[in-house]
Computed example of a mutant assay.
Amino acid sequence: MVIAGYQLFRYALPFQGSPGQGGRAIRNGLLLCLRSTGGATGWGEAAPLPGFSRENLDQAAAALRAGADRLIGTAWPASPATMRATMAERLPHAVPPSVRFALEQALGEAWAGEHGRSLAHLWREGPAETLALAALVMPDEGGEAGWAGYRAVKVKVGRGTPGEDAARVRQVWERLGRQVGLRLDANRAWDLDDALAFAAALEVGSGVPAVEFIEEPLRDVACLEAFVAGTGLPVALDETLSTLAPEALGRYRKVRALVLKPTLLGGFTAVARWVEAGRRLGMRPVISAAFESGIGMRGLVAAAAALGEAGVPAGLDTYRRLRGDVLTPRPALAGPEVAVAPVLTGTFGLNHRCLTLLHTAGA
């Protein structure tokens, strides 16, 4: 496969209902379309998440254009293992994480088109055919009967008092029929005293089932061990991972799960390293989204099918918060379980109303 040229787009999509992440009304991102000399195309998405990504959109656009320019005329191998190794060697490591995700996704999709495979097959010989998904309950939402089939529900906490958050978690669980596992996400909202107060108000063990995990309960990650010892609640790392190398996970042996967001961590190669390091320590990988559009979601579905753990619901429900999409029709990502192949290899058009062409280069 030889890369002949590319197009770079910017998109703007409104959030559904109330403002989305960080109180913003619009999700902005970048789309890269690579073209091979054989006629294959590959799409990738770079959508820095304000407040969480180190890079902003303008920085990502400059880095993505520079990275795509360097790809024109390059040849890429047919073997999946060699392709992975070549990407790890050739693609620059000093690019922003969202840009690395876009470059790896676009190259992987172009490779898949050239060889009649799916993006997931680049990263695993026998990827999962279906994915379990976790539902996401945002602070402005309550539980709905339509979510009763989910095995896991993620509830955002840390926005009210510890007692108010605990009451809301119990309410959501009651409305969902008491049949779901709870994933709680505090986004580092609490100090240790508030986190302990939340656990006490939740009354784990007296009517509420075991919590699967609580993501990033503490502003000071050094207090995680004290929190686990004082509450018995399992914890997961998310934002902290952006400040660590996978080899440093041994410091956090009380951690139960790793919430892995390719947009924030730097793509498939980086996530594969986190998965391997976490599994050695008994930590479950949970592939998760960061409010990407349908093209980014396609990459996340491939990552979950190839790198995720069987039976562990992926955290891809942020997609529901977007009103409209860059793809038409929208990929089928609603419900507690989705089929992988239609998302990765289905026929989709582009919604040009939300796209702005930034640059074209090559043939």
Rank of each mutant, 00 (worst) to 15 (best):
L265W: 10
G315S: 07
R323N: 15
A304K: 07
S288T: 12
L316D: 01
A270P: 00
A310E: 15
G267T: 14
L316G: 10
R273D: 15
T269M: 06
P313C: 03
T269A: 15
V271Q: 04
V271T: 10
A289W: 00
L300W: 03
A306K: 04
G278N: 07
R279Q: 15
L307V: 10
R298N: 04
S288H: 00
V312D: 02
T318I: 01
G267N: 12
V301W: 06
G267Q: 11
P262R: 09
V301N: 06
G335M: 03
G282R: 11
T263C: 12
A290I: 02
T269I: 13
A305T: 02
V259R: 02
V301G: 04
L265K: 05
V312F: 05
A302S: 11
V326L: 13
V275L: 05
I287H: 02
A304Y: 06
L264P: 04
V301C: 02
G278R: 08
P329E: 12
G282C: 11
L265S: 06
V286Q: 02
P262G: 12
E309A: 10
S293L: 12
G296N: 14
A306Y: 04
G278P: 08
S293H: 09
D325G: 13
T269L: 14
D325W: 09
E309W: 07
V312K: 04
L307I: 04
L327N: 09
L281G: 09
R280L: 15
P285T: 03
R280W: 11
E292N: 11
T263Y: 08
T269G: 14
A306P: 12
G299A: 13
M283C: 13
M297P: 03
T318V: 00
M297S: 02
L307Y: 04
V259C: 06
V271H: 02
A334I: 06
T269V: 04
A290L: 06
A310C: 06
G315M: 00
T328P: 00
A289K: 00
R323M: 13
V286N: 02
G315I: 02
T318D: 09
I287D: 04
S288R: 01
E309K: 01
V259K: 01
A277D: 12
G315Q: 01
W274Y: 08
R321Q: 13
L300F: 09
R330K: 14
L307H: 09
G335H: 02
G266K: 07
A334W: 03
G315F: 01
G308I: 05
A289H: 02
L322K: 03
F268G: 04
